[in-house]
Design a protein around this nucleic acid. Sequence first.
DNA 1: CAGTCCCAATTTTTT
DNA 2: ATTGGGACTG
Length: 708
Amino acid sequence: MDLLAELNPPQRDAVTHPGGPLLILAGAGSGKTRVLAYRVAHLLRERGVPAARILAVTFTNKAAKEMRDRVDRLVGGGITRAMWIGTFHHICSRILRRHGDRVGIGRNFVIYDDDDQRAVLRRCLKDLGLDERRFPPGVVLAFIDKAKNEAVDHVAYAAQATGFYEEVVARLYRAYQAALREANALAFDDLLLSVPQLFREAPEVCEEYQERFAHVLVDEYQDTNRVQYLIVKTLAERHRNLCVVGDDDQSIYRWRGADVRNILDFERDYPDVTVIKLEQNYRSTKSILAAASGVIAHNPHRHAKVLWTGNAPGDLLSFYEAYDGHDEARMVADEIARLRDGLRYRDMAVLYRTNAQSRLFEEQFLRVGIPYTIVGGVRFYERKEVRDLIAYLRLALNPGDDASFSRVINVPRRGIGDVSLQRLEAFAASGGMGLLQALTRPEGVAELPKAAQRAATDFVGLLERLRDRVLRVRATDLLEAAIVETGYQQMLEGEGTDEAYGRLENLRELVTVAQEFEHTTGESTLEAFLQHLALVTDLDTWQEDVDRATLMTLHSAKGLEFAVVFLAGLEEGLFPHARAFEEEGGVEEERRLCYVGMTRAKQRLYLSHARNRTIFGTTAPAIASRFLDEIPAELIARQQKAPPPEAVWPDEDREVPSFAVGDHVRHATFGEGRVLEVEGEGVRAVVTVRFAQGVKRLALGYAPLQRA
DNA sequence: CAGTCCCAATTTTTT
DNA sequence: ATTGGGACTG
């Protein structure tokens, strides 16, 4: 197959560029993913670059997987197995597993997520005798993360800290890093920060990687932060074959430390750079592209770039001014149900600014019966039971993991409560031990009740039994064993509630995830699986092939496309978000986010806002987003106004008859029937009724149902 | 020590 | 509006 036949001239130039620094400015929908995959294929096939000598960095695991699949399809033979493709975090984690010992990071290090980090920091606050109210863990962590993203370690931070608050943060930063080191744990951002450290302290390791990676490719370069910039720069230094792809108009992660300057200043960093612009959009209709361009044109300081498309003009954009959030969601649900004639659910997505907005859509989708998936929000891996089980396994693998220890020592309840735990902590600290280690000598803990001592011995035994199998047994088997042996299953079965069984289901799901992981990667060790878990996201497990409508935030939608997109909640304060007003450049970033959202749509774009928005349980009038005004008016189909509220949503205070199972009822259309099931209460109740013509589930808020 | 109740904070966005 | 954490009680 001729790789180049399907490419336009600039795409072709990008793919065949011989070497040296290459900046590809790729507008939305200009086929950049394709160009990257083709370029890798070209390097492998035409230029004979060994797969093992190519490094490709993507923004999400999903993108990594797609690139791998795509290149394999182009070149064949699973050639990408030897290639390094992954997110920055993945790549760095891999490097640290191999060479982390050079900077004092043990091979079995665990990766701490937000929750774990918070727990560690709280511990530090306590140890330093600081008040959590004055120094909320979340706020302090934000300071620390920000520093880490800017490649500032605790030493450098202490040196530049000014003012009382920052000096306290500096002390906390130091204690925090020490605690992490003690537990052989890395905070998420440490994965990145530790690599430049490693490269500094072990130059021969650095050189090894520099020599190895003949070609370095980076996707979504506009969203790299300072550390990532440093890593890329270092890795590509030897061969200078650095190809970065990005779009400054789609930089939406500044809050995470992303620095658009990385892309804007690329030409300054590499004066001999070749710049290629991809300006033809293959994704959207002319209307959609023009509307998005109209919005983004309001931003200053952009790389000059004019997107165009040869696609059809398409429909005008729809705009709906809803009465409130419920009404907005109702419109979307009804519209999706209507569009279902001709389109699949999976071709449609609802995008919103904040996760909290998802619930309204969920309600309405349930009402209309639209299958959906929500990406983000309460993530599977953040569910309590899942985290608990993982904590057991992490602790088995890494006995020094105090955060995991504290998490599970009393789950299920073992009679070792806060008081005992505090005494244990004191004992551990006095002996310089980890908590689990301290627990092996329960007699050393002051005033530990007899029952607690016995529980301690049992717990230590349990962990030893798990630990004993860690290296011998597959992760899946170990998980199954842990569910039972920890007593977790018994505890949940004992509760007997639907919720408890749901949690048990989630644990089984985790076993399935491990099975799939083993199946796709061939890795069966617990260590590999835990690392995988720490780095996967909701988006990565998002199933495109299932026919469901997608609900997600605008941020999650980056890099995706849908035939139909609903962009909801276009209100001042929500989108652009109120927080954006406080920061210099905040509104510009929101505008880019809007641009990203709009350009996800291929055929149809729906915009909506609510006149009344409920936040924190209080409803306030909302003003249409400025972004709506920035779209050329002639591209928007005249708005439909919301009907009066009574017609669209049942009044929450309305009197609704209540029914019990077995009641005889009458429905205007279905006649008489008998109630089989009642879920919820009041206007929100859903009753299942057997009528002569069949069983129906009805929402009491809508259904004209009376006592017979 | 565990269960219950009450209050506060949450809602920006995520690898 | 929901949820988690902290205080209080049994």
